[in-house]
């Protein structure tokens, strides 16, 4: 199984200055009745993006022409809290986003994003203010995972943390499921030494 390695990219940013954006906002539950990942980008921020008649609300940022082709979303503090649904990063990636910038991310969302090539970029408040202001003007940045930096148009740059293993996987296209299956012999040994705590079969 090969995963596309992530390379540096340059893109316009979209500003969504809302705090505590939870995964129910990113994709409401009624869109979770699917059995695949296709088309979830259309449901991204559905309750904010479409009016009661289902027509796109022209005032919402993702419906504006500047959002077209943008691959970086700058959101308010604490992005991705709430439900564990991986449909949230699937919807963001489906729309075309490759990175989300916030001051911090909820754990499960962060994990889920990293497994889908969507970079959760956590920056400090000062950098966040700067990027949010720049995004509001439709500014461009270059995101480089290898150096863990976001490069601004004025040449300034902001660094961001990322778990070394996740970085390694994303840069080299390492597939984590394959990695775990490769641990098989050690898992065999663990199981041999630790009796099952519960047996679900025969339920």
């Amino acid at each position: 199984m090969t995963i596309e390695p992530i390379r540096a990219f340059t893109s316009r940013m979209v500003a969504l200055p809302v705090e505590n954006v939870d995964t129910d906002q990113i994709i409401p539950a009624r869109f979770l009745k699917v059995t695949d990942k296709a088309g979830l980008g259309d449901a991204l921020f559905a309750d904010w993006r479409y009016g009661p008649d289902g027509a796109p609300d022209p005032g919402f940022i993702l419906n504006r022409p500047e959002a077209r082709g943008a691959r970086v979303l700058v959101a308010g503090d604490n992005f991705g809290c709430g439900s564990s649904r991986e449909h949230a990063p699937w919807a963001l990636a489906g729309f075309g986003f490759r990175a989300v910038i916030s001051t911090f991310f909820a754990d499960i969302f962060r994990n889920n994003s990293l497994k889908n090539g969507l970079l959760p970029i956590a920056v400090d408040e000062a950098a966040h203010r700067r990027l949010m202001a720049l995004a509001a003007e439709g500014g461009e940045v270059t995101v480089d995972l290898a150096s863990q930096t976001v490069v601004l148009p004025d040449g300034g740059s902001v660094t961001f943390p990322i778990e070394p293993f996740a970085k390694h996987c994303l840069l080299n296209g390492v597939d984590q499921l394959g990695f775990l299956v490769g641990v098989g012999p050690e898992i065999d040994r663990y199981e041999a030494e630790h009796p099952a705590r519960v047996a679900t079969l025969g339920a």
């Binding site: 564990s84 649904r85 991986e86 990063p89 499960i108 994990n111 889920n112 497994k115 889908n116 984590q176 499921l177 775990l180 299956v181 641990v183 098989g184 898992i187």
Partner: peptide
């Protein structure tokens, strides 16, 4: 709680 990719990880390993 885990995401769906991780559900796959646990199912497989």
């Amino acid at each position: 709680g885990i995401g769906t990719s991780e559900v796959g990880h646990v199912l497989a390993s």
